[in-house]
């Protein structure tokens, strides 16, 4: 049984993009498109989720993801409660399910879950009441589906189609839940060539089996690309000596204007944030005309609105 789909094939939870059919991905992207103008109106709200309670359960700190989920929920007129559990009851030793049960007893309708452990959102989804939906806002190294979706939305907005693109994901794929979500989504949406470009020490074993082409040389990998996704060098997650130094990394894998010139002239540059300027990306590229990093943030709100609206509409009140 697929935990994140209802028996009729509609979305029940959003936990991972792995195994989600193209129809659902496209439906989310199309719905996000129609939420795009809400942020520009006199009243930046639609009444869709009026009376629903959405809990942001952040077991791991995050500013941007939590804020965009909060704004998205508020633009749908939901009531939002933010819980930074790393600093509250977890430190008092409360088990995750006790936390969740207590919040469910407060009549929660949806949980947005961020956790350092892979599988945490799945675990909660498996144990919640039938009317509650769970959205994975990042679990360990495993998955970050709304980030993957907003990246697809960004690509579609700037490039129109997926079927004629070459997309490169550059950097710390090993520690990146974002990269996994992107690869699944790009493949499902029909991108013919997905490349990962990274030093051997920052690639998970068997990454080729996800249907990607592996490059260890940035210059060779960027040649002819339409979309370049730079990943954050997750130095805080790095255990042991995977890299000599950040300076060394920038020398070989940092995206500079000279290296960007090897991709197609109209290539776009993306980054899930937060950026390490001068490590994985040069400031001149990050702030340059080919960068779509700030539009990604704006689109993230519309995409999260779409996910929450689709999930909340699928449950019976």
């Amino acid at each position: 049984m697929n935990l994140q789909l209802n028996p009729d094939g509609s979305l029940r939870h959003l936990l991972t993009l792995d195994g989600l059919p193209r129809t659902i991905l496209t439906h989310i992207l199309d719905t996000a498109e129609s939420f795009m103008d809400v942020g520009e109106r006199e009243v930046k709200k639609v009444p869709l989720l009026r009376g629903k309670s959405i809990f942001n359960l952040f077991f791991e700190p995050s500013t941007r993801t939590r804020t965009t989920f909060e704004i998205a929920a508020k633009r749908l007129s939901a009531d939002v409660v933010n819980l930074n559990i790393a600093t509250s009851s977890q430190t008092k030793g409360e088990a995750i399910l006790d936390t969740v049960d207590n919040l469910a007893a407060m009549h929660a309708d949806m949980f947005i879950v961020r956790h350092a452990q892979s599988g945490a959102a799945h675990f909660i989804a498996r144990n919640v009441a039938p009317h509650i939906s769970v959205v994975n806002a990042g679990d360990g190294r495993h998955s970050h589906p709304t980030q993957g979706l907003l990246d697809m939305f960004t690509i579609r907005r700037f490039k129109g189609e997926f079927h004629n693109l070459t997309v490169a994901i550059v950097g710390d794929v090993l520690h990146s839940r974002v990269a996994r979500s992107q690869i699944h989504a790009l493949t499902t949406l029909g991108v013919p060539e997905v490349r990962v470009i990274a030093p051997k020490t920052l690639l998970p074993t068997g990454v080729e089996q996800m249907g990607v082409k592996v490059y260890h040389d940035l210059e060779a990998g960027l040649h002819g690309c339409d979309v370049i996704i730079t990943l954050r060098l997750q130095s805080e997650r790095m255990k042991g000596a995977l890299l000599p130094s950040a300076q060394e990394y920038f020398k070989f894998f940092g995206l500079t204007p000279a290296k960007l010139a090897l991709a197609k002239p109209d290539a776009i540059v993306m980054h899930p944030g937060p950026m390490n300027r001068g490590v994985e990306i040069d400031s001149e590229v990050a702030d340059g005309p080919q960068s779509v990093i700030l539009p990604q943030v704006t689109y993230g709100i519309a995409v999260r609105m779409a996910v929450m609206a689709i999930l909340a509409g699928g449950t019976t009140a």
Partner: peptide, 20 residues
Amino acid sequence: ISFYRDDFSRIGLHPQVKPS
């Protein structure tokens, strides 16, 4: 008017929402 329907919580979002 999909985002303003009063039956949203019963029948969910219309599959083909068009932008206003």
